[in-house]
Design a protein around this nucleic acid. Structure first.
Lengths: 350, 350
DNA sequence: CTGTTAGCGCTTTCAA
DNA sequence: TTGAAAGCGCTAACAG
């Protein structure tokens, strides 16, 4: 229980003294960009730093320079593979640029999201990436927008991962188009009686996927009756319960589309638990292509989003380091991330 | 493309002036702990801050106070559910204490881990949580230890999530014991011909689970021949390939234990792809109880670790806010996290 | 209770 | 090139 006498970390001052040079020289040798320091001095400083176990105090540096090396990432739920994959992309990209990533979770709670953004501003991050599922119509929307605008006014950069977040830079996800393509592919496979486990009504991503899917069906002259759409939580359990509800209603369905993979996984389990074999009995499709959908049985048909890449882009969009991918950049970021329908065992040809 | 004239964020100074009070008063009204400020003044300050869109510059605050509100979390791979669940726990707990968490990934690369720790020290985090899989015997081990020790010497606190990381605070995972219990349970179920898809040899977690499992079998007089142990990557694909290798060797096996769930998921897929039905043909068991193992078919037998909780504890251990759970605290943290064998469909009674 | 005034650790003019 | 000194935004004695 003896508390060790806790020295404080070595400061640049200490290093300078140890090396017998001025503070300024020490600073220049260790961090200053242009190498305008006598090599001999530099050596001594570096060695002194080494000897003292010195590490630049990033905060002090930030205060002095007036700019940080932090990027703040907001996600709804870090344990959700959708977000953790995106986070991986952001972190890797940030690493490459020497930036440090701070993660905050909002739990899909608008108020909390707003509070978090406010709190995060205190960190003066260089960039703020919002990956949470945008919500529509709430009173918070305007507040969030204004908070972010003011963040940008004061030198920050924000980037969204979303379907439309003008006026901010956005990694565009074409949820509507992806869902439409999926619907078309499924119709061509011979499915006719569709049901959708949609997410919460306020979540734009969920809405768009639902609408896009309906559009795709419409192209094939297939209607999607309102009673075939059940709204549920954006989670595995939400999907599970949604499917149960659907079955309870006794609808005659040959394919269930869950608006994201986590939900679809729940649907598959629910069907199986109800004695219906997913795939051979009722087809199931999801959206996102998270890693696990390959390993459940049957493997899930879904719409692939290159999640890691999306995260990476979101950062690059903000730092301006986006590699040129040939896509015309309209200023609000490149064209939508390409999306791809992946047909697997859960939707055999009928 | 017009760059908006970017004002810099309002400073406390601005607020003070706007409110017509001194810097000190402004500081006290906004952040100072003890409320020793005339309510009228306080009002004016708060309003001024509001009007100016002021947010405390946390970095400057940190520099002035000499202490930060940051906690750094190191994980091997944030997209791995094991780590993202732990991260969720850390983040939630941190939130409750008003701390901000920064996540770095090490990719199970010792050198990178070391570099990361060094870099992270620049943030002067209050606490550093290492959740990466400890490695044994490497030359880095000592360096890491010394880097961390010096971090603690200068006022930081480190906490490990591991099986033994003395002399640092540790959320103890009883990998050995958990694996032993699992082996016993499986033996009691009637399995006799075991094989293990073990992780990389250097990863202690993998080692311990392997050894514990062997011990458990030994208790039932069941040997585990070396050729029944194949070492593979700690990932889903590692598990997949490991199983393939095992099958190729033609061993006569009735149960495959993969030392973690992600690998086990790969094993299940590999078996199925090889035409062997997991569960009815060969039993499969994993370790961790990540969410997906309930949804694959058959559901996976595994050893449960309360991952979220583990993350939360790791933080509390460091901040000293651990709730009293009645377990005698030996100073290095509470007793091992309780572990539980969960039998599911992948290991029916034989 | 309020204001003045040193710092905190680092960067960056500005002279030398 | 180097060093002295003035900040960066905030806190914390210290007087008043």
């Amino acid at each position: 229980m003896s508390a060790p006498a806790s020295k404080s970390p070595a400061t640049l001052h200490d290093v300078a003294r140890e090396a017998g040079v001025s503070l300024a020289t020490a600073s220049r040798s260790l961090n200053g960009s242009a190498r305008k320091v006598n090599e001999a001095y530099r050596q001594r400083v570096v060695e002194a730093a080494q000897r003292l176990g010195y590490t630049t105090n990033l905060f002090a540096q930030a205060v002095a320079k007036g700019s940080t090396t932090t990027v703040a990432l907001l996600v709804a739920d870090i344990a959700d593979p959708y977000f953790s994959s995106i986070a991986a992309g952001v972190i890797n990209a940030a690493n490459e640029e020497g930036l440090v990533v701070t993660i905050a979770v909002t739990g899909r709670d608008t108020q909390r999201e707003l509070d978090t953004v406010r709190a995060l501003r205190g960190q003066r991050p260089r960039v703020m990436i919002l990956a949470g599922s945008r919500t529509t119509g709430s009173a918070y929307e305007e507040q969030l927008r204004s908070e972010l605008a003011s963040f940008e006014d004061t030198g920050g950069k924000v980037s969204f991962i979303s379907q439309d977040a003008a006026p901010f830079a956005t990694v565009l996800l074409d949820n509507r188009g992806g869902a439409r393509d999926l619907a078309v592919a499924l119709a061509e496979l011979g499915y006719r009686d569709f049901a959708v486990i949609a997410g919460p009504r306020e979540i734009r991503t969920a809405q768009d996927r639902l609408e896009g899917f309906a559009e795709g069906l419409a192209e094939h002259g297939i209607p999607l009756a309102p009673e075939r759409v059940v709204h549920a939580d954006f989670t595995r359990d939400g999907g599970y319960r949604g499917a149960q509800e659907l079955l309870a209603a006794g609808a005659d369905v040959d394919l269930v589309f869950a608006v994201n993979d986590v939900m679809a996984v729940g649907v598959v389990s629910a069907l199986r638990d109800a004695g219906i074999e997913p795939g051979s009995g009722i087809g199931v499709a999801g959206y996102d292509d998270i890693p696990t959908v390959r390993d459940i049985t049957p493997a899930l048909t879904t719409v692939r989003i290159p999640l890691e890449d999306v995260g990476r882009r979101a950062l690059q969009l903000a730092t301006g380091s986006a590699y040129d991918d040939g896509v015309p950049d309209s200023g609000e970021g490149p064209a939508p991330i390409p999306t791809e329908t992946v047909l697997r065992g859960s939707t055999p040809r009928r």
